[in-house]
Design a protein around this nucleic acid. Sequence first.
RNA 1: GCCCCUGUAGCUCAGUGGACAGAGCAGGAGCCUUCUAAGCUCUUGGUCGGGGGUUCGAAUCCCUCCGGGGGCGCCA
Length: 555
Amino acid sequence: MFPEAIHDAVAAALASLDGGGAPSGGPSSWGFVVERPRDRANGDWAANAAMVGAKRAGMAPRDLAAAIIEHLPEIPFLDGVEIAGPGFLNFTLSHDWYLEVLRTAAAGGPDHARVDDGAGERIQVEFVSSNPNGPLHIGHARGGVVGDVIARLLDYVGHPVEREYYYNDAGAQMTRYAASLEAAMRRAMGQDAEIPEDGYHGPYVLEWGAELAAEQGGALVEMGEDERREAVLAWGLDRAMRDIEQTLAMVDIPFDVWFSERTLHDRGDVDTALQRLDGAGHLYREDGATWFRTTHFGDEKDRVVVTSDGRYTYLAPDIAYHLDKFARGFARVINIWGADHHGYVPRVKASLQALGVDPDRLEIVITQMVNLARGGEPVRMSMRAGEFVTFREVIEEVGADAVRYFLAAYSPDTAITFDLEQAKQQSMDNPVYYLQYAHARMCSLERFAAAEGVVRAPLGDADLALLTDPAEVELLKQCDRLREEVREAAARRAPHRMTTYGTDVATAFHRFYTDCRIVTDDAALTQARLWLVEASKSVMVAVLGLLGISAPEAM
RNA sequence: GCCCCUGUAGCUCAGUGGACAGAGCAGGAGCCUUCUAAGCUCUUGGUCGGGGGUUCGAAUCCCUCCGGGGGCGCCA
């Protein structure tokens, strides 16, 4: 109910100041906001209405503030309102409000702060979408974690969310991959074969080639060339996809839909999309190729969709793919792309616009680079030569929780260096343990209480008013932030806000633990504090759950 | 050359229109015979890259300059 209740009340006060008849646009036309003051001394919530509206009201901000207070309707759980600084209205909530927060959190569990802001707005989040010709690396991992957390956040605020992985199982890259695999297979079988210059050279190619040799090598070499090529490609696709899916499962990143590029070709969707573009007059031929006039939609140059030797460029199926997404009824589509793809945004948006889909419905989150390091030394990688540390290796070395935390903790806009040594350390260099430790302590307290024979009585019987220690109040205030923090993180597509918030909750809890002994001879106080622990646990489990990090009961 | 991201404490990063700029780490001083010290308290440390502008108010918005990263194919 906060901050909405305050906003409504202030809007009502402004409306009555306006002479009863709310003018154009109604109360919200004043355009003020209710937000958290940076400094706690300035209350629980602050409204800038008096500053924003001073000009329109023809009054000095502080005078307008006083007038607003004069006309302010009653707000439940409000303890007081003050004018401060240049004209802020600072609202302080009552202790009772925080006890309501405790009851809601303790009774409602980790889902207690869910909202249905997004009801009815189906969103697709498409992420990772690595080509199925090798293992995932750390860059894919970041897209995976960012996309996964965004999907979890959107779900929490009430959007029906579908997670999709798009894989390019058609085209020249796959042909090169299959040729490389076949060569590796032949080598494993003792034949003389060279992996093509423009093929894939990573150690995994040799490894998978050997697997292929062992599984079906004999049969494959007997086949005709075309048949064998098809069979190797199919096996290679399956092998890569299995590796990718398993790796993602290791860090708890599931997908609802695995979408194959081939289906677009097989169904004729690519042709259809190009015909539609042509029909709308957006295509032209030049130098033997077919061009899409993307400059008409703000791109810096036109793009080829069919090459002079009759093959599609990657853009052609991408047009069909994005068209297909919206044909599936998503109100909004979010793509998580690596920084190296940012240049493609204009042309994909152009294709949507050209075909009558509002390009604003497609949102593209760009994740910046991830560099790997070990003990401060950069780990050199070459994708072309296939020399890179795989995501799987990183997970095995540092653990799923630490990986997820690290990849979620920074704004997607920031380039990051993932230091394997640091991520592995179970120290304060690794704040993931700080959050998990808070949760483990909560569980430990419950175990201790039970061992002491303390039974938690029903919530309704607890005298929560006993919770007046500053550390207790601070912890309750932190718990109260969950809903607004999730909303903000979801709206801004900003997973890292959850790690920041989680740290605040953990800090408040550790402080509470240090300052207030929970299980004591004072039965009533013990009951109240155990319920506070329970409420905090709901919040902590919610945060860890949104981050996809495990909540250990003991550490 | 053009486009995107970025420049905030010694380090890694939060904060993107509000009130004296924050966290962790690192540095300094303390706290375990009692519920997990992977914890807590206090403390040192900043011309928010430089300069202009918009605004009642700018780390935040605009312009410009400088530094770092990425992208600019009839490759994916």
